[in-house]
């Protein structure tokens, strides 16, 4: 198999589009959540300004090598996840670096950034960071279980581990989507999705704007800016997986934007309605509600 060098600039173009889309989308969803609270919310371009400001700070300090590598791991988790799954189905240009067994790699990449972050935040030595990391890892681990079960169910259903093939099998109308053909797997996957989007009721890890901000407590300037970049890319990359596995993929950028927005809105709507779970509550919730659905999806496929 020969490697085509044109794939590199094409993948970078995908990355660029997704970064900008992610920055605007997260701001838009924050605005929508603010409207639910009768506020105006941040300006739509606020994420760009925050990024620019954080890159433009004049000082930064380090706590050691892992502290440097934490945000780098986090970002490579997001970028890797995006680059190894096909973004636009049927487009040679935006199929990125996907290959036959990419589904397993994608599952790995979803977890990768969290682990890197745990090491980096652990080295910062701040107790809030350590608490945040232990909360985050336990919650992500519990949320990962139903996703893994749903993915296995989908892989069994289509007899393949290639995301491209799974998308191909779902073409030809809504009736062919996994949403219709294997609804239990989709429900398990979406339960897991709620848990991994860092929105209420599963946002105790970051607990935004309260005393413990969690793992990034000690991160600032460029380190924080790297993590903000990832916060724009990673959710979109994750939703690309969901879109490809469950909702028929996207054959154009317009379809991509619409589907990603709607998938994001699932967690945003749940987030503005439900209050926050404590960690042990959320783990119990995943084990009692999401995992049995995932097991049923595997048994009934």
């Amino acid at each position: 198999m020969t490697f085509e060098w044109i794939k590199i600039p094409q993948s970078l173009l995908t990355l660029f589009i997704v970064l900008n889309y992610g920055l605007l989308l997260t701001a838009l969803v924050q605005k929508i959540a603010a409207r639910a609270g009768r506020r105006h919310g941040i300006p739509i371009w606020q994420n760009y300004v925050d990024l620019l400001k954080n890159y433009g700070l004049r000082t930064n300090i380090t706590h050691g090598v892992m502290y440097y590598l934490g945000p780098v791991f986090r970002l490579s988790g997001g970028v890797g996840l995006l680059l190894f799954v096909p973004t636009i189905y049927g487009s040679e240009m935006f199929s990125n670096l996907s290959f036959a067994g990419d589904l397993i790699l994608a599952l790995y990449f979803i977890f990768f950034g969290t682990l890197g972050m745990a090491l980096g935040a652990g080295e910062s030595g701040h107790p809030h960071a350590a608490i945040g990391v232990s909360r985050g890892l336990s919650q992500v681990t519990a949320a990962e279980l139903p996703l893994a079960l749903a993915v296995f169910s989908v892989a069994l259903q289509y007899h393949t581990l290639s995301v491209t093939d799974i998308v191909a099998a779902q073409q030809g109308g809504v009736a062919h989507w996994t949403l219709v053909t294997n609804p239990l797997a989709v429900v398990a996957g979406m339960f897991s999705f709620l848990g991994s989007m860092m929105r209420s009721p599963f946002d105790v890890v970051l607990a935004p704007q309260e005393i413990p901000i969690g793992p990034p407590t000690e991160y600032h300037s460029s380190y924080l800016a790297l993590m903000q970049t990832n916060r724009a890319i990673f959710p979109v990359a994750k939703m690309v997986i969901y879109m490809n596995l469950f909702f028929g993929g996207a054959s154009s950028w317009a379809e991509f934007c619409l589907k990603i927005f709607l998938i994001y809105m699932v967690s945003a709507l749940v987030g503005v309605v439900f209050p926050r779970f404590r960690v042990e509550q959320s783990i119990r919730w995943f084990l009692t509600w999401a995992v049995p659905v995932g097991v049923a999806a595997i048994l009934l496929v």
Partner: peptide, 22 residues
């Protein structure tokens, strides 16, 4: 921070740690 005045409109946000605040 709340609907009456909503400073977020003006790019003002609250951070819980001095590292990130300016």
């Amino acid at each position: 921070m709340t609907p009456r005045f909503d400073a977020y409109r003006y790019g003002i946000q609250w951070r819980p740690t001095p590292r990130q605040a300016n």
